[in-house]
Nucleic acid binder design. Structure first.
Lengths: 288, 288, 288
DNA sequence: ATAGGTTTTGTCAAGCTTTTGTACAT
DNA sequence: ATGTACAAAAGCTTGACAAAACCTAT
């Protein structure tokens, strides 16, 4: 039970700028407030009373007669709290991040990342800034608009920051997921993002990483007694090639595949396909 | 089983800054606390009690009447502590750091520090977490909202930690800065922070420390052939007193003053004044 | 097993700074210790007793009442602090790190890393703990003594920690180095370690990463106006294949090669060969 | 707005007890 | 080494008090 705060008349006066005498007068004359009383008879006001007094003052300074102002203020609805959501523009953040990363200005990139981190949620950071930027970076690389060095440098810096957020993600008591990429697959940033989103939903994450043979993954999953095994790939082929092994893995663990190259595997009907992006996928998994 | 710590009333008083008499009065009058008793009848308080007292104080300084403050503090939820938020929020980090430091929980403080450092950069750690917290701590100490024991403990732990980060900051090949506080000045945390920020920008740092006569400083600067000498003080007087000597020092080295007490010195026109906080100041210096 | 040493009360007193009378009082009053007795009735204390006394003192200086301090000290866990606590043993650290990493206990590994970092220098961490461990891990992987998943997981966690230490290493004013691996080469941890060691010596580091075509590297080096370009490889072939391009690169920048696969390139006489390990190599480069 | 009375709350004092480090006699 | 003693420091309870903050009524 959240007990509510009660203020005495002096504090109300201080907070509203209305003298105690006047507060009492408004109560007596117009019934503006009906404070509780302490055992000894002191007035105890609520936050709503505070709002009423402020409203009363506003009406007065707008020229209303005191009696009118009081009637309006006393009847006023409880007044919803102003939310004041901080503005954050993911698109601008993305562009800024790209600009500094692609001219190899790592310190500036760290500063931009810091700023984004302080202003938004993990889900937004992943789904609206980092992952879209990386996708866009990949596209431009294919169109030869950025060099390999730029691509390496940018994704390297971002990958490190995501992994730093992940530090300790194996700790705790939640269900356990083992994450890896199949043989031949080298892009693991999306998988890291998925792990972060799943971690934020209470799971423990064990990250094996890129280019992992399924036998080895199976060992790890068994030794950890994992609840879920997730494989991610950008190239469909790399998943097709291991479909049979994945189906076998489903006998002991829940198994899911994800990433740009994920589509339902004919040969592995019990493997869940995740194809809506790291954050949405994590939501699906966490919701069972 | 981890036995829990029990504190006697004197220690609680020291840690919260509330007199023993008052603690007993709050217990008697409002039932704020219900300490166990030793065989001989001494009160034995838990950490939760400590939290409650602290909350009570916060409510009081927010203007609540003691009876109200006590009612709220006594009913407060047991402990919403283990945040472990995946994201980084400087404000939240600051509060968390304060909470653990002020209840003398050093291991937890180290963990918070580690987490912040993992999730963000040194600049942000200094400029948005540690230094603002210390400033706030000082303010609250002056308003008598934290005890001197709390202030000592918190700043001691943070200072230690910053010095650990500083290890090896004199090595390498960058330009060299000599850092010290003038005679009479004992607060060197801000200076350490400045040194760390400057180190991150490639400088070599030689930290002489607090309360240093200008002659010794001059010797050190000369023998190191320093590019820059920085003095920091919280009290303007301590810098005024050495203005002449500083001006003389400018013949051989660049000289700057910084810290809360820094303002341009009439008597030392060639001394650079740094007054924008440790990190911004380091940026200024590094940018020439 | 070496027979355990027993200390008499005077020695315990000397080592802990607690008077013999007080030691006896603590025993009598709180049962803090239960020393064996010699034939003649002298108290014989163990090392655990010594630890208990020290713990008791720490609690006392933290403000706990003697009775409380004793209760906590007596119940304290057996304390796995075997040898000199302050001493740092790289070999032990390596083994501990390996043990936890190879059973996929990431949180424990982070803790070990933190501890090592707190107790030693970056150079030691790299040269005596992380790099030897990784070398050993690679060997055992080739002998099939660890699985691919274990190897991936372990090197992934360590790589992240090193990169986190590297954050901001491009900032400042020192000479600039561009670091990359040649096409086909995927092991970049040694290169990261080299970058860290060089950074500690005042250089600015621009890390491009694994598997980078020399053309792209050349672009980056030019746009950054790099003082030094370093390529690292574990496989000699991958360097031989680009020897001609590297020689061309020497017209505009100093160029060095390093890593297990580095040996002087016939076709590139102006390329410096680094073959003494990351830290020693950084020392060589920094010393010009 | 003032006067005169009441409540709230931090502080202090007196007299006694418990705790704890040290000292001493055997 | 043991056991007892002792004294300083720290606490406990009860009761009282005074300043600040509030009350009602004029």
């Amino acid at each position: 039970m959240a007990a509510e705060e009660r203020l005495r008349i002096g504090e109300v006066s201080r907070r509203t700028g209305v003298s105690p005498e006047l507060l009492r007068a408004w109560e007596r004359r117009y019934g503006l407030l009906h404070p509780e009383r302490s055992a000894g008879g002191l007035r105890l006001y609520t936050f709503e009373d505070l709002e009423r007094v402020r409203l009363m003052r506003r009406h007065l300074s707008a020229g209303l007669a005191a009696a009118e102002a009081a009637r309006l203020a006393a009847d006023a609805p409880p007044e919803p709290m102003p939310t004041g959501a901080a503005l954050f523009d993911p698109l601008a953040a993305r562009e800024e991040l790209g600009a500094v990363l692609e001219r190899f200005d790592e310190p500036a990139a760290q500063a931009v990342f810091d700023r984004v981190l302080a202003r938004t949620t993990l889900d937004t950071l992943l789904a609206d800034v980092v992952l879209p930027y990386l996708r866009d970076l990949g596209d431009r690389w294919q169109r030869d608009e950025v060099s390999i060095a730029q691509e390496h440098h940018a994704s390297g810096v971002l990958r490190e920051r995501l992994l730093a957020l992940a530090r300790g993600w194996g700790a705790g008591a939640g269900p356990q997921a083992v994450l890896a990429c199949p043989p031949g697959e080298r892009h693991d940033i999306g998988l890291i993002a998925f792990g972060l989103a799943l971690r934020a939903r209470g799971w423990r994450i064990h990250f094996i990483g890129a280019d992992t043979p399924i036998e080895s993954l199976t060992d790890a999953a068994r030794s950890l007694n994992a609840d879920l095994v997730v494989l991610a790939a950008t190239m469909p082929d790399s998943l097709d090639a291991v479909a049979g092994q994945l189906e076998a893995l489903t006998h002991h663990h829940r198994v899911a595949i994800g990433g740009a190259g994920a589509r339902p595997l004919q040969a592995a009907p019990h493997v869940l396909t995740l194809e809506n992006g790291a954050v949405a996928d994590a939501e699906v998994v966490a919701a069972r």
